[in-house]
Simulated assay, not measured.
Amino acid sequence: MASASAPAKARRVSSRARNDAVLLGAVDQARAAALDVAGTPDDVGEHLGTLAEGERLMSHRFAATMKGYHGWHWTVTLARVPRGRSATVCEVELLPGDEAILAPQWVPWSERLRPGDVRPGDTLPFRADDPRLEPGWEATGDEEQDLVAIDELALARQRVLSPQGREEAAERWYRGTRGPTAPGAVASASECSTCGFLVPLQGSLGQLFGVCANEWSPDDGKVVSLDHGCGAHSETDVERRRSDWPDPAPLIDESTVEQVDLSSPRPAQDHGARTPGPDDAGTDQGTDEPEGDGTA
Rank of each mutant, 00 (worst) to 15 (best):
A2M: 11
E254P: 09
M58K: 00
A249I: 07
S243D: 13
G282Q: 07
A103D: 14
S243N: 15
V76M: 05
V44S: 02
G141Q: 04
G277N: 12
V27S: 01
T77I: 05
Q269L: 13
G136P: 14
H60G: 03
V37L: 11
R266A: 07
E171P: 01
P163Q: 02
P41S: 08
R18H: 05
A33D: 05
P218D: 08
W74D: 03
D146L: 06
G165W: 01
V160K: 02
D219Y: 10
A185G: 14
C90L: 14
V199W: 10
H271K: 07
L208K: 03
T295C: 13
D220Q: 13
T140W: 02
H70P: 05
D270T: 12
P104G: 06
G39W: 05
K67G: 08
P180D: 06
P120A: 07
I252F: 11
E93L: 13
M58W: 01
P180V: 07
E291Y: 14
E99K: 14
P82C: 08
A32T: 09
L94I: 07
H228D: 04
V260I: 12
R178G: 00
T181E: 14
E99F: 15
P131E: 08
Y69D: 04
G272W: 13
H73R: 07
R178A: 00
V199D: 12
L124V: 10
E134Q: 11
S190M: 06
R274P: 08
G203W: 03
E53H: 06
Q164S: 05
P108W: 03
D20I: 00
F126T: 14
T140F: 04
P104T: 08
S162H: 04
C230S: 14
R61A: 06
D122K: 04
G210I: 05
W216N: 09
A2K: 11
Q202A: 11
E235K: 10
E91C: 08
V257W: 12
V37Y: 08
G68Y: 07
L94V: 07
G25M: 01
P218L: 08
V37A: 15
A273Q: 09
E291M: 10
P200R: 04
D220H: 15
I252V: 11
G97F: 14
A33Q: 06
T283F: 10
V89C: 03
N214M: 08
Q29M: 02
G54C: 06
S243E: 10
T275W: 08
L78S: 02
A154H: 15
A34S: 10
E134M: 12
F62D: 01
A52N: 01
H60A: 00
E289M: 12
G184K: 07
M1F: 12
P278Q: 06
C230L: 05
D151P: 01
H73S: 15
V238R: 13
R159P: 00
R178M: 01
K67P: 11
A63V: 05
L201Y: 05
I252H: 08
Q164M: 03
Q202N: 09
E138R: 14
N214Q: 04
F197V: 02
W245T: 15
A232I: 02
D130Q: 07
P135T: 09
P180R: 15
R80E: 02
V44K: 02
V27A: 02
T75P: 02
L102F: 06
G229S: 08
E134W: 04
S264L: 11
G277T: 15
K9T: 11
G231K: 09
